[in-house]
Nucleic acid binder design. Structure first.
Lengths: 180, 180
DNA sequence: AAAAACATGTAAGCTGTTACATGATTGG
DNA sequence: CCAATCATGTAACAGCTTACATGTTTTT
């Protein structure tokens, strides 16, 4: 069984709010900040077909008083389980460095599928890994040759500040989930 | 002529600090925050070959007292021009939404190839586009259904705060380039 | 009635990933 | 001297992008 791609999980996750067609899903990707995940038909339709073949989605064709059939998808139980397992994965250093946006997608989907307990664990480990990476970046900044690298130094500072902003956000989010 | 990929520009840009071999370049990608751009040999070696075929890089084989030949690359004049043109592109909304990391890569390379004037223009348009996008996100936040979407709302806030951090950084960087 | 937008898809091509192959150095 | 690492690649494969194809509603 091939591993599911990020786009695949994004599709399964969106379908937990109700059955949608491929076209509907494309519109979601085009009109929301989730747009990172490819709204092109050549990506979405094949992905839906793969997920259906793997038994993670089930598609059904409506013929509601229209000549044009409309195929909508919903997650199967196995699809839900696969998504849940994906959400429950530990947050790694590599996630923080290379796939911070994917981590945020995971967080967004946890609202439907994970409890406050798991959300807290996620945010705590996210903060931990972010802090570790910021430490790495700060070390790089210190050991940077001082000379003609103003642009390089600034770019590095940008990365540090951006990750610090994520740390602040995660801490604040954590407080909201502890409050409950 | 095929358009050059981001990885291609990253390679050309790095080679402006001195000729390097494919292996050297891989190490740079592995050991610095530029690591986003694929350090895998199956990406880098074919990319170097393409760039050489297109006349943007020239490779030369050293046989310095060693049996093992070592092929190093340096940008050609056309390669430098291609990079310069890439750096001079206007900052678009789509860049800010989908390729913020690429914008930072461009900024880092501007240190070698662009003057303070162009750097200022870049940062100014970056701030403008970032502010526009933050406005979009804030609007989305206001019009978000209030109900059961705590996670979704928080994820959106994360995006807003992250982009605001970039705005603050760009403003600060701009001051440094105005000072000079 | 014609044009535009809706809705669903397919095909070709290319880039990147993963895994493997191969020989040259260097360290213990 | 043997193993690990250096250094340079290649091959198979999969997914995404762009462009195209096709028929259906809706708008003008």
């Amino acid at each position: 069984m091939k591993p599911t791609t990020t786009l695949g999980f994004a599709l399964i996750g969106l379908l937990h709010k109700g059955p949608l067609s491929g076209y509907d899903l494309r519109k979601v990707f085009q009109s929301t900040p989730m747009g990172h995940y490819s709204s092109s038909p050549g990506a979405i339709y094949p992905a839906l077909r793969r997920l259906e073949e793997q038994g993670l989605l089930s598609g059904s064709v409506d013929r509601g008083q229209s000549l044009r059939p409309r195929k909508t998808f919903r997650p199967t139980r196995r699809g839900t389980e696969a998504l849940r397992a994906w959400l429950a994965q530990p947050v790694t250093r590599d996630d923080v460095v290379f796939d911070l946006d994917v981590l945020l997608l995971r967080f967004a989907f946890m609202g439907n599928l994970s409890g406050a307990e798991e959300t807290r664990r996620f945010l705590q480990s996210l903060v931990r890994e972010l802090e570790g990476y910021v430490g790495e970046l700060e070390l790089q900044l210190e050991t940077l040759p001082a000379g003609p690298t103003l642009h390089g130094r600034l770019a590095l500072e940008c990365g540090i500040e951006s990750h610090r902003a994520h740390i602040r956000w995660a801490r604040r989010a954590l407080r909201k989930f502890k409050a409950q």
